[in-house]
Design a protein around this nucleic acid. Sequence first.
RNA 1: GGAGAGGUGCUAGAGUGGUUGAAUAGGCCGGUCUCGAAAACCGGAGUACGGGUAACCGUACCGAGGGUUCGAAUCCCUCCCUCUCCGCCA
Length: 463
Amino acid sequence: MHDLKWIRENPQSFDAGLKRRGLEPMSPAILKLDEERRANTGALQDMQARRNAASKEIGKAKGKGGDPEKAEALIAEVAGLKEKIAAGEKREREMDEQLKSVLAAIPNLLQADVPDGPDESANVELRKWGHPRNFEKEGFEPKQHFELGEALKLMDFEAAAKMSGARFTVLKGGLARLERALGQFMLDVQTGEHGYTEVSPPILVRDHAMFGTAQLPKFEEDQFWAISGELLSTKSEDEVDEAGTLVGEIAYLNLVTRLREGRLSLVPTAEVPLTNLVRESILAEADLPLRFTALTPCFRAEAGAAGRDTRGMIRQHQFYKVEMVSITAAGQSEAEHGRMTGCAEEILKRLDLPYRVVVLCSGDTGFASRRTHDIEVWLPGQDAYREISSCSNCGDFQARRMQARYRPAESKDIQFVHTLNGSGLAVGRTLIAVMENYQQKDGGIRVPEALRPYMGGIERIGA
RNA sequence: GGAGAGGUGCUAGAGUGGUUGAAUAGGCCGGUCUCGAAAACCGGAGUACGGGUAACCGUACCGAGGGUUCGAAUCCCUCCCUCUCCGCCA
């Protein structure tokens, strides 16, 4: 969410920022709304001031030694204001609502050093680490993770599809354990070595939490929603005819409204609950930065991804992820961004998985982010680098949406905190990377050294 | 699910519908005292929006949203949340 006052003072910068996002100028429309709203509010406040003054006098006039006739006269005078004030208040609510809904749908502005470009092809590589294994030299063709997993009979897509449909996987035995080991390993590194506080948060959250991190209002379709059975079984009167059948468009809209009001979201990432930990609070600067991490399941509808990555477990409706969230003072977020990216990279280094870091271009950077680093891990089975982590600096964009502020040490002006989030890492995709990079000619999978303590000393998965 | 009690500032906790943005205590900040600290004493301090160069002024905010009233922290309605007892439940 953007600062209206800033837009008022810097309309040209604002529109220039939107242009980088491929958006038309919006400041004229916003400022027009803003002006109308302020005019209305000004007039309203004058009336309220008059009413308050008169009411105070009425109180005195009615009290001991007062003048009852004067009170009557004042009451009559103020009564005339009543309707106007009510109308002004209603108008104020409407305009606030309108302005808020416009602002809520505008993406964050990009940091100046983000490269311009239309899509992921314009992302810029920052660095590369490690050397992909030479399978040719070893005399075999690397397989994809699902080929390996199915051959080992430890990865079952059919069983998952029977109970849950596409984009779900059943892991068994060594692979199930490997997944668990990865989660524990990552959490231990981020908490034990990088100073993140482990959190076990709710993974069902209300709409306002989703609004805070900016999944709402724009990305409703990408989420899964949990609805209590009670909500589904109760029909309100205007939704059904005499026979109890749902009828008509209004009925449909009523139903949707009711479902929206009662639903919870299955979080698409622990970024949502971790960042909302500081919502509506005023922190002391001395307490910053706050660093939180959590291992949670993540749920994604993958609405716009039909047909993409359908084989295997690259793109699932449900997966585990270790998420990192940092809450910093205003001047500190860029440094923290670099640090956080390093914390994610460290996991790959420990696992000895080759990767590269790219900075996303303007066209590929997410809605809430000012600047995003993606870490892409080498997948020999796919012969490609694939995203395994995404670290974003959101600046004060989310903080403003959730009223998360801090009191600077050297000033009494309260400011919005900066928020950052990053995967450290996506567990499912790390599992894939381990499988493909550590596969053996016979289809077995060597367990990376770093994970062996978490695997009861097992050195390989498969015969 | 049934019955009940509550949500007030950083915290605890008052608050007959009318100078209550809010008593009081603790905490916090500043000062006096002290070599320094503690104690004691004095003073200060909410958030947002709008107006003003500024001092400052106005408006809103006592869980959220509506309503009654000339006037609401106080009365009414809806919702959210917390707590106690009972029931059900991993």
